[in-house]
């Protein structure tokens, strides 16, 4: 299930792309979910753990992935218990956050109102301890917390 805390949270990783640079592991990149997210969001193809083919930048390393994809990969694979700031992700990452949360309890912070409009879903808003199931319920709750 996806748990969201809106606003600042003590101990959150506010800058996940920076954290990623110093913490990622090769096998996180070649994992099928990561490869799929990289293809969808960055329009790039994973060639190997240290090589990605980008249509704009050419051959890049995982260090040059977008901030959004780096954050998604951390959400999927980092098991340190860290809570990542999902405002490093654009709306085009929302469906992937929900997908990652299908298989694990995922807690994130948000400093903006990400567009979660892929109903049906169940999102637990930690600030109010409320579970929302529609985009409208989610927005009605979020606008009061940002």
């Amino acid at each position: 299930m996806l748990h969201i805390h809106f606003g600042n949270l003590d101990g959150e990783i506010y800058n996940p792309p920076l954290y990623f640079l110093h913490q990622y592991e090769d096998e996180w990149i070649t994992d099928s979910l990561s490869a799929e997210m990289i293809r969808d969001v960055d329009k790039s193809t994973v060639v190997g753990p240290r090589l990605i083919d980008s249509p704009v930048l050419g051959a890049i390393s995982p260090r040059e992935l977008s901030g959004g994809v780096k954050t998604l990969i951390l959400m999927a694979h980092d098991n340190s218990g860290s809570i990542f700031n999902a405002s490093a992700c654009g709306d085009n990452c929302a469906k992937w956050i929900l997908k990652i949360a299908e298989n694990k309890d995922l807690t994130i912070t948000l400093h903006n109102i990400m567009k979660f409009d892929q109903e049906p879903f169940a999102i637990h808003i930690l600030n109010t301890d409320q579970v929302v199931h529609t985009f409208r319920e989610y927005v009605d709750a979020a606008v009061m917390l940002i």
Partner: peptide, 25 residues
């Protein structure tokens, strides 16, 4: 590989949007 061409009109401009659009680049 990349060219950005834009005009800044006022004292504060905000850039946001989807991931992987080239903001960090």
């Amino acid at each position: 590989r990349i060219r950005y061409d834009f005009t800044i009109h006022r004292n504060i401009t905000v850039i946001r949007g989807d991931s992987a659009t080239g903001k960090t680049t």
